[in-house]
Structures are given as structure tokens and as C-alpha cells.
């Protein structure tokens, strides 16, 4: 069995008929159990790459293999694959008309056919882990940003995904709430979850990442261990990027 959970081959994503090249030839792979952090300046294509991995963005060219299967092939059932790829968004995207427990049990009951009781039990166990079990009847509007994002993470975990994709999970949070979300993510990494994280939190990248990918203008400029990237940058672009983000 191949150890790469995701392989990206020659991925391109162009907008407005090729005028905007959000991704311009990406090749990379994510290994099982690995935590990969993607960094880069604004507009470099980080979100586009991450969202291509579960086909929220349909590539213009190239392939994405998930567990060896080409999910960009026209006849693949993308819904089946997405069940195994959890995603966490910058703006949480909790369902505002449902309480927390319903947010978490909707997909397992409707998609996986779990019983309400089983799904609730699983949801409560996850809520205990993130310290929010006492808020299970609350509605998203009654929670703080940090609480919402922790719920969004465990909602995705309810589907028992093989990989978790994070698109700037802390960027919409007040500074004092960033830590509580990063802690949950770090715990998840410790438990061996495969994670792909787009973030501006360089501290998280240094501490938690197994590998860091630096992108600019739709291509991967450099990748390596956090030590390689932060302490021994090779390219001018990465050096100049680091000089701006690390004060």
C-alpha cells in the first residue's frame, strides 16, 4: 500500500480564461499521519490548493489522487471521498438553524446511516475532548468564535475522516481565542491525524508541522522541515516572506 494519502500531479487552476493563474503547476504529496503546513503571501494560491484537494475547486488541469484513486476523473463519486476528508473553514460555517449536537450528528446520521443515539454518543465524546459538552444544546450564535471553530473541527471529526484540511482556521478569531483552537489542532496532530493546514500562525508551523510548504504565485517555491524553512531558507522569495512575517 502506498503511503501517500494524497498525491497532486501537475495541478493548475486558472480563472477568467487563463488571465488569473491561481495554481500554475503544483506537484506534491501528503503522507499518512503527516502534518503539512502551507504558508505563503496573500493571493499565492494556498486556499485554492487546499480547496482543490476535496474538489471544492475543480482543477483546470492535473490530477489529485486520494488513497490512490484519481478523484478528478469525471466518473468518480466525489461525495464518497469527501466523507473521508474533513474540512475546517476560516468562517466556521456552522449551521445556524441547528444546535451544536444537531450540527455534529446531521452528517453521520444522514450519510453514514448511524442511529441518532450512536451519533450523539460519539458527538458527546468529542465535545468532552474539546471542553464544550455543556454547550451541546446551544446554537452557534450563542458561542464565541473560538468555541465555534472548535465545534467546526469536531463536527468534521464526527465523519471519522482520514485527513483534515484547515483553511486559515484562526484568521477570523480575536487574538485571545487563537490558542484554544490551535491547542485542539495540536492534540489532533498528536493523535496521528493527517492534516493539511493553511495558516499565518508561524508558531504553529514551527511546533506542530512535519513539513512546511512555501507557495508563491501559484507554485511551490520551497518545502522542507520547519527547521529547513524557517532557519535555512534558500530562495530570495522565502527569505523576504519570512522577514515580513517573523518579527
Amino acid at each position: 500500500m502506498n503511503d501517500n494519502i494524497i498525491e497532486v500531479k501537475g495541478l493548475k487552476k486558472h480563472y477568467t480564461g487563463g488571465a488569473v493563474r491561481a495554481l500554475d503547476g503544483i506537484d506534491c504529496e501528503i503522507r499518512r499521519g503527516e502534518v503539512v503546513v502551507i504558508v505563503g503571501p496573500s493571493g499565492s494560491g494556498k486556499s485554492t490548493l487546499l480547496r482543490s484537494l476535496n474538489l471544492l475547486e475543480v482543477p483546470t488541469e492535473g490530477q489529485i489522487l486520494f488513497n490512490g484513486a484519481d478523484i478528478t476523473a469525471p466518473k468518480t463519486n466525489i461525495n464518497k471521498h469527501r466523507q473521508k476528508m474533513g474540512m475546517v473553514f476560516q468562517h466556521f460555517n456552522l449551521f445556524p438553524n441547528m444546535n451544536i449536537i444537531k450540527n455534529m450528528t446531521l452528517a453521520p446520521t444522514k450519510i453514514l446511516g448511524k442511529s441518532e443515539a450512536d451519533a450523539e454518543k460519539q458527538a458527546e465524546e468529542l465535545l468532552v475532548k474539546v471542553g464544550l459538552v455543556d454547550r451541546k444544546e446551544a446554537y452557534p450564535s450563542q458561542l464565541s468564535g473560538g468555541q465555534k471553530q472548535r465545534i467546526a473541527i469536531v463536527r468534521a471529526l464526527c465523519m471519522e475522516p482520514e485527513v483534515m484540511l484547515f483553511d486559515e482556521p484562526t484568521s477570523a478569531l480575536d487574538p485571545e481565542m487563537v490558542g484554544e483552537v490551535l491547542d485542539v489542532m495540536q492534540d489532533l496532530a498528536k493523535q496521528g491525524m493527517t492534516m493539511v493546514v493553511v495558516t499565518h500562525e508561524m508558531g504553529f508551523a514551527k511546533e506542530v508541522a512535519d513539513r512546511v510548504i512555501f507557495m508563491d504565485e501559484g507554485v511551490i517555491i520551497e518545502e522542507g522541515t520547519p527547521d529547513d524553512i524557517f532557519n535555512n531558507p534558500q530562495s530570495e522569495r522565502l527569505k523576504s516572506f519570512l522577514s515580513k512575517v517573523l518579527i
Partner: peptide
């Protein structure tokens, strides 16, 4: 909000 849609699709609906 389109995010609601994306959240649903990303869960596998």
C-alpha cells in the same frame, strides 16, 4: 451564505 453550501458538501452530502 455559500459557506453553508461548502460545509455541507465537504461533509460528504
Amino acid at each position: 451564505d455559500n459557506g453553508q453550501f461548502e460545509a455541507g458538501r465537504s461533509l460528504g452530502f
